[in-house]
Structure formats: C-alpha cells, structure tokens
C-alpha cells in the first residue's frame, strides 16, 4: 500500500482485492463477545471532518476503536476553522501533535491530496468535494462481492445525481477496474460531461440502465450542492428517475439495491424499494466498519519498497 488512501484512482486491482479480503477477516471481529483486537495500540488517529457526516464518521470511529487506536474526532462546528483558520494551518497544527493517521472529509475536491503533500501522517480520504469517497466504493464492492461472489462481468446500474457525486466517481473507477459493466443514468443536467471516457454507458432512460442489472446503486439528490435549477422539482424527478418496484422489476430477479445514504425517500428511491427484500442498504453500513478496519490496518504498515 502507498502512504495514503486518497482515492480509488491510486489503487491497483490487487490492492483493492487485498483490502476486500482483509475486510473479510475484520468482519469476524465485530461478531465476537469482545469486539476489539490490540493491533493499532498506541496509534493515534484524528478524524477531521469539515463536512457533516453521521455514517462515515461513526463508522471510522468504530473501526478505529475495534483496532485499539486512540481516536478523536474534530467537527468543524466546534473548531478554529470557524475563527478563520485555513485547511493547511489546521492540518499543520494537528500534525504538530504527531498523530499517525488523519481521516479527512472536506467540501473541496483535492483537499486530501493537498494534505498528503504536506503531512507526514497517513491521510485517509473520507470524501473530498465532488471528487472521491474511496472507502464507500470499497464497502460497496465488498457488499456486491458478498452477494454475487464476484464483481467481474456484473451489470451495475448507478442512478441519480451523477454530477455532484464523489461516490459515483469512486465506484465507477473501482467497478471498471474490476471488470464490471457499469451503466449510469440521471437527468441530462446532472450527467457530467465526458462520462463515457470512464468506460461506462450513459443513458437518460432509467429503464434502459436497469434492464437485466445485477446491482442497482442509487445516488442521493444533493440539493446542498445545487446552486442552479438542475431539476424542475423533486416530484418530477421521482416520476422520471425514482427507483420504484416497477423499475426494479426490469433488473435481474436477484438484483440487489444499494444506496450510500443518506436516503431521500420519495425522491430518488421509493420506501417499498428501500425497505424491500432486495435492499442491502443496511448491510452496506455494517460492512463499512470491516472495510475501514482493513484500510486502517493495511495503511499502518510500511510503505511499498520499505
């Protein structure tokens, strides 16, 4: 492994499989009476979250504690960032207290790459702007592999707000690297230009995208990142792109439904689908802990080539 986990773009398919295989072993720890191993004893991990997050931050914290790391979380609402401190200054100050790893979420794409260049600590990207969210893509892959026993050759349809989604980018990079056939679908205004260059098929018809799919992955409509009029209304969006039971019926009978959360019920996904038998949304959350434990463990070792 390299020093940092900045994105799926920097990972080889061997490294991705190593993380997934390690996560298999890590998952068992969560089923023990004592859910803790001494592996990262004495390591300090700082969770630096410049954007709100429940799932990802909780998941990282649980993962860190299960590996016995000393961990603390800094939420921007209570930090000096509000007093005007820059990202670099905040990071350098934390760095001065010599943590071993810093888990970063930031609204600016590339924030983790910047920190990676100036910090000695290992940087784990927990989501940077509209760029990448590598641990989400890894836990999605873990969940898919658990259900389908493979990733290679599967048809995966990703539907929703493609433009603002870091989850999309990380998933597309990962799934195409491992040989899946990826379809993406959303309103024309929310499809980034040049999507095809990532090796995916683009369709503005959800029906076409989900036809015979093995996996349907929904993306949230990110209203907080929308400063213009991308969609006429949420109701119209649901009518044209919302994942309903009728649309799911076009996929393979054993297709699984995924969502990285937080869900907007009745906007991108109908409640009957979100809570349906083919939904693996809560499994994704459970698997997130094991995958993050694997990433923390693997990054804590030496770097490639000593």
């Amino acid at each position: 492994m390299k020093k940092d986990l900045l994105g799926i773009a920097e990972l080889s398919s061997e490294e991705i499989y190593l993380i997934l295989d390690t996560a298999e072993a890590m998952r068992e720890i969560g089923q023990r009476p004592i859910k803790k191993v001494p592996t990262l004893r004495g390591k300090t991990v700082v969770n630096l979250f410049f954007e709100p997050s429940t799932r990802t931050r909780t998941s990282f914290e649980i993962a860190e504690k299960r590996l016995s790391a000393d961990t603390l979380s800094i939420a921007v609402a209570t930090s000096s960032v509000l007093k005007g401190e820059t990202l670099v200054d905040t990071a350098m100050n934390i760095e001065a207290m010599s943590p071993d790893m810093i888990v970063v979420r930031h609204a600016a794409s590339g924030a983790c790459h910047l920190l990676s260049r100036i910090c000695r600590s290992r940087i784990i990207n927990a989501g940077d702007g509209m760029h990448e969210h590598p641990t989400q893509a890894l836990l999605d892959a873990f969940t898919i592999r658990e259900h389908k026993k493979r990733i290679d050759g599967l048809k995966v349809a990703i539907v929703g707000d493609l433009l603002h989604s870091r989850v999309l980018r990380s998933n597309v990079l990962l799934l195409t690297k491992l040989g899946a056939e990826v379809w993406v679908s959303g309103p024309r205004t929310l499809v980034p230009a040049g999507m095809e260059r990532f090796g995916v098929r683009v369709s503005t018809s959800v029906e076409e995208a989900v036809a015979d799919a093995d996996v349907i992955m929904m993306l949230r409509i990110q209203q907080e990142r929308m400063q213009g009029a991308f969609i006429p209304s949420l109701r119209e969006y649901f009518t044209v792109f919302g994942m309903t039971a009728e649309r799911v019926a076009r996929a393979k009978p054993d297709a699984i439904i995924m969502h990285p959360g937080p869900m907007n019920r009745g906007v991108e996904i109908a409640s009957e689908v979100a809570d349906g038998p083919y939904s693996v949304i809560l499994e994704q959350v459970a698997n997130g802990v094991a995958v993050r434990m694997a990433v923390l463990y693997l990054l804590a070792g030496g770097q490639e080539g000593g």
Binding site: E24, A25, M26, P38, T39, L40, Y297, G301, G302
Partner: peptide
C-alpha cells in the same frame, strides 16, 4: 485462529507491507 492482529512485532518495524490477515473461525 489467525493470530496476525495479535502479533507483538506488528508496527514495530514499519517497513514493507502488513502481513496478510485471514479469517478466524
């Protein structure tokens, strides 16, 4: 039993990749 996560030499000499962890069942 896989004892990798309990080894006393993990993290002591952080050179080279981490040993592979496999499942305890």
């Amino acid at each position: 039993l896989d004892i990798t996560l309990y080894r006393d030499d993990l993290m002591r000499h952080a050179v080279g990749p981490q040993p592979v962890v496999r499942k305890t069942e």
